[in-house]
């Protein structure tokens, strides 16, 4: 929202500290650093299942046909898991967990431990959606601005572009990955 120069001022003057819970936010540099693989691809399968191991919960396996690897190598297909899904009549929802459909085009930031199915770094923060505009240009959402200025940079609703050019985004990610690649 961008009554922003007003609202924060008033809240500060009113001694109302900022607060929230749930997600520890990450910017693109952190996501890139924490991801073991970053993949651009298209969803070709979505399937819910009971989670493996002693825990009994519904999760969803999402399989991508890989178009490009921005960090790491995964072969031509990659499967990752997200919380929630539907099995028979039972539907489990974890607010904030992304939902995928077949043919979705995405860039995902993935991590894993040992021989496990990868997961999204930062849950929904580790997903960028690729869209094609009417003029055929491909963009990614969310259009997270990169903090390049060296000073705190407000995220302004309705001001910065809501989408980034796909190629520019990929270049930015690859640059970040090359700087901090593990």
């Amino acid at each position: 929202m961008r009554w922003s120069t007003l609202i924060p001022l008033v809240l500060v003057l009113s001694s109302v500290p900022a607060r929230a819970t749930v997600l520890v936010p990450a910017d693109l540099a952190e996501l890139t650093r924490d991801a073991q693989a970053i993949v651009h691809g298209r969803v070709i399968a979505v399937e819910s299942q009971w989670s493996e191991g002693r825990r009994r919960s519904i999760e969803t396996l999402v399989t991508l046909q890989v178009e490009d690897h921005l960090k790491g190598q995964f072969g031509s297909e990659v499967t990752f898991r997200v919380p929630g899904g539907q099995l028979g009549p039972y539907r489990t929802i974890m607010p904030g967990a992304p939902v995928f459909g077949e043919r979705d085009e995405v860039i995902v930031f993935l991590a894993w431990r040992g021989p496990s199915v990868p997961w999204l770094v930062g849950l929904g923060q580790g997903v960028y959606r690729v869209t094609t505009s009417a003029d055929g240009m491909r963009h990614v959402r969310p259009g997270v601005p990169l903090s390049r200025t060296g000073i705190p940079q407000p995220v302004v609703r309705g001001a910065a572009g809501g989408a980034l050019d796909l190629r520019a985004f990929e270049t930015a990610v690859q640059t970040l990955a090359s700087r901090g690649a593990r």
Binding site: I7, L11, V16, A18, A20, L23, D27, E30, L146
Partner: peptide, 21 residues
Amino acid sequence: ETELRPGGGRRVIAAGAVMFP
């Protein structure tokens, strides 16, 4: 509202609800 920190990550500038995510 949030802002990007120069060192990485986002910080809340202001929130008007406990349910801000």
